[in-house]
């Protein structure tokens, strides 16, 4: 438990403009008080550094604190010890400036609002005029043209998640946080959603943190995969994924891809064993 993987900062490529650090988590502990003096340590000295424009996936078994990391980055929780900085400021700052996009595992769509108003919600919440062209563009991007007036309960699970992702992208956020957005979907829909998300990310290049327990999903989407282990949650390994994009079926069927899937799956298994 005492081994803490400290991530090296991204080595600056001299040929490109220096990349800014988007997210840095420094020695973050999170201890929840459960009442009657009981405490639960969800995170122990987590260190993360994510560069601007990077897509990072956090994988780990259930209860390893990966969602807690995301909540810290979103400013929904504060670390008990340590610091979280987003673009050099505290996380809540980013939310207050309407520069944060989040899609939760629960889609949290407003049931009384149409697809269109749900996607336009961030504009209204920010007190900005709704950019109709942008909303139309997003509806098209997530493939929901023709469903603008539908309400969430009339949509399938996959469609709701796509609305939720479109909503997260509405204000062209500087940071996108995705907490198992496809967790509730069947394998086929999930693969299709992965491909769509990869395509959307390819167009928008937003700094993204994706929390998932699906190794394939992480490898299809991410530049780097962070493996976390549980109780208390900490970073076990960081893997750089350098398959070329777009990562189509040809790549996911390659032996290199499978080798990496196996390696990461082993790490998850090992971490399960350690936690037990």
């Amino acid at each position: 438990m005492s081994t803490i993987a400290t991530l090296p900062a991204i080595a600056a490529d001299p040929t490109e403009p220096a990349t800014r650090t988007a997210v840095s988590v420094i020695g973050a502990d999170k201890i929840f008080t459960l009442g009657r003096g009981k405490k639960l340590q969800a995170l122990a000295e987590v260190d993360l550094e994510i560069a601007e424009g990077e897509f990072v996936a956090i994988i780990g078994p259930s209860g390893c604190g990966k969602s807690t990391v995301l909540r810290l980055a979103a400013g929904l929780d504060e670390p008990t010890n340590g610091r979280v900085e987003i673009f050099g400021a505290e996380p809540r700052q980013l939310a207050r400036q309407h520069r944060l996009g989040v899609a939760f595992q629960e889609h949290a769509l407003l049931p009384w609002a149409s697809v269109r108003s749900n996607i336009a919600l961030p504009f209204k919440v920010a007190g900005r005029p709704v950019d109709d062209a942008r909303v139309d563009g997003l509806i098209d991007l997530v493939g929901l043209t023709g469903f603008e007036k539908a309400r969430p309960k009339q949509l399938s699970g996959g469609m709701r998640q796509r609305v939720s992702i479109a909503r997260a992208l509405a204000l062209s956020p500087d940071l996108l946080l995705l907490d198992e957005p496809f967790g509730a979907l069947d394998a086929v829909t999930r693969r299709r959603m992965n491909a769509e998300l990869a395509r959307i990310w390819g167009e928008e290049k937003i700094t993204t943190i994706l929390v998932t327990h699906d190794v394939d999903e992480a490898l299809i989407l991410a530049d780097r995969v962070i493996v976390m282990t549980g109780r208390p949650g900490h970073v076990r390994t960081v893997k750089t994924v350098d398959f070329p994009r777009p990562r189509d079926a040809e790549i996911t069927r390659s032996s290199e891809f499978h080798a990496l899937v196996d390696e990461l799956t082993c790490l998850l298994d090992a971490s399960d064993g350690a936690a037990a």
């Binding site: 979103a74 400013g75 929904l76 939310a95 207050r96 400036q97 309407h98 944060l100 996009g101 989040v102 939760f104 629960e106 949290a108 407003l110 919600l121 961030p122 209204k124 919440v125 920010a126 007190g127 204000l171 946080l177």
Partner: peptide
């Protein structure tokens, strides 16, 4: 609470 979290991360003020 998920919807409340959503409004928080989108930077909603109390009135909205």
């Amino acid at each position: 609470s998920a919807q409340h979290d959503l409004f928080t991360v989108f930077g909603s003020n109390r009135a909205r």
